[in-house]
Computed example of a mutant assay.
Amino acid sequence: MMTRLLLGRSLSALATALIPTTLTLAVLGATGSAETLGLVLACELLPLLLCLPVAGVLADRWPPQRVVLVADLVRCSAQAAIGVELLAGVDRMLDLGVLSAVTGVAIAFGMPAVPRLVVAVAPREQRLRMNARIGVATSLSSVLAPALAGGVVLLAGPGWAALLTAVLFACSAVTLGGIRTAANPERAGGQPRGAFGKELAAGWREVKGRPWFVASVLGHGVWHFTAGLFLTLGPLIALTRLGGEASWVLIVQSGTVGLVLGVFAAPRLPVRRPLVAVQVAAALYLLPLAALAVPLPAWGIAAAYAVAMFGLGVLSPLWETAVAEEIPEAALGRVRSFDGLISFASRPFGLMVAAPLAGVTGTTGLLLAGAVLVAAANLAAIVRIPAARPLGAPRR
């Protein structure tokens, strides 16, 4: 079952990573308008954010493999509809926006169910390794997908790229939907339908009752916000002060290498306090922000970004595993939906406000402020982290 879980998550990650490039090329090819592209992409993000709290309740109420199955089938249908429309030469932006919104809703409902699926399938002592393998698949997908989608679009058109995405989601649905898991004893017998609001409130109490989780998630939200600043201002500085596009490509590719190496290293590091390691890893993002503020030569920024992304690679599987061990399984979907809400909202906000803020403060001041903020927010959370318990150890 663990092999099936890894295969299904790999297929889903690749399909998810294909969507932005396919949509971008389809919309720009049809309209040439960056504003229209922004609206279509926002049509996916806004429903995702609105639906996440509800999705967390359903992820805890129903078997996770069924939730993931339905979510992937909906995404498959939406991408197939986009592909058929593009192949028919219709190119109606309203249709693409509606289908992107459907995709966003499906992402929202599938996302909080995944941690529960990992918990249900992987034994406690193997969860870190499983989360690391899923992290490797996700990282590689983020690297390969733009090239794959771009190649298919150039050779056959964006319609076929959308249909390829639909096929991958269908394969993911069949793979993950067929996983058999033991029934959750806390959910045996089902839940009364009238308890939905109470379950939503109970999920918030689970979050609020863990100050370490709230502080950590807020720190991660700051990380995503400052990543938005870096990814907006970085290309501009590279073009104007670092010698052009090649310098930015060097920086980005160095970060990708660091990310993959970090994910590989995570289960092999002798980490005694995983939650502390997570916060220190997040604080490392101060390095590329400060390097870009100076700015250092391109190779210096690339090295700093590689270290920061190595930290992200270590952070992700450690966080997934540690949270699954600290949060009761019956509440895991609701708690993780809060985590996802903060993360998904913060980065677009950083992307949106980077240029206006830089116009007021200057790029150097904004980047240095971001460096201080990301380090302070994540290191401050350490004081709220509970005493260490080795990953995989039974709960006391």
Rank of each mutant, 00 (worst) to 15 (best):
M1W: 00
M2S: 07
M2P: 07
T3D: 09
L6V: 06
R9K: 05
A15G: 15
L23T: 09
S33K: 06
S33L: 02
L45F: 12
L52F: 10
L58Y: 10
A59V: 11
D60N: 05
P63D: 08
R66S: 04
G83V: 01
G83N: 01
V84S: 00
L86E: 10
M93F: 03
D95M: 14
G97W: 00
S100H: 02
G104S: 10
V105N: 00
G110D: 13
P112G: 09
R116V: 05
A120F: 12
V121Q: 09
E125L: 11
L128I: 14
A132T: 12
V136I: 15
V136P: 14
V152P: 00
V152Y: 00
A161P: 07
A166W: 07
V167M: 08
F169I: 03
C171I: 02
V174H: 04
T175H: 07
G177Y: 08
G178Y: 13
P185T: 11
R187I: 01
G190T: 06
G190R: 01
A195K: 03
G203M: 07
W204G: 08
R210V: 13
A215I: 04
G221W: 00
G221A: 02
V222T: 13
V222F: 05
V222L: 05
F225A: 01
T226W: 11
L231D: 04
G234V: 04
P235L: 06
I237R: 05
A238T: 02
R241I: 06
L242F: 13
L250W: 10
S254E: 09
G258N: 10
L259S: 07
R268Q: 11
R272H: 15
R273S: 13
V276W: 13
V276A: 13
Q279M: 15
V280I: 15
V280K: 09
A281G: 04
A282N: 11
L284C: 11
L296F: 08
A306W: 06
A306M: 13
V307P: 03
F310T: 05
P317Y: 13
V323S: 02
E325G: 14
E326H: 14
A331I: 03
L332K: 08
L332A: 11
G333R: 06
R334E: 04
A345L: 15
S346V: 09
G350R: 08
L351T: 03
M352G: 15
P356W: 14
V360T: 11
L366F: 08
L368C: 05
L373P: 10
A375L: 15
A375Y: 12
A376Y: 03
A380Q: 01
I382Y: 08
P386A: 07
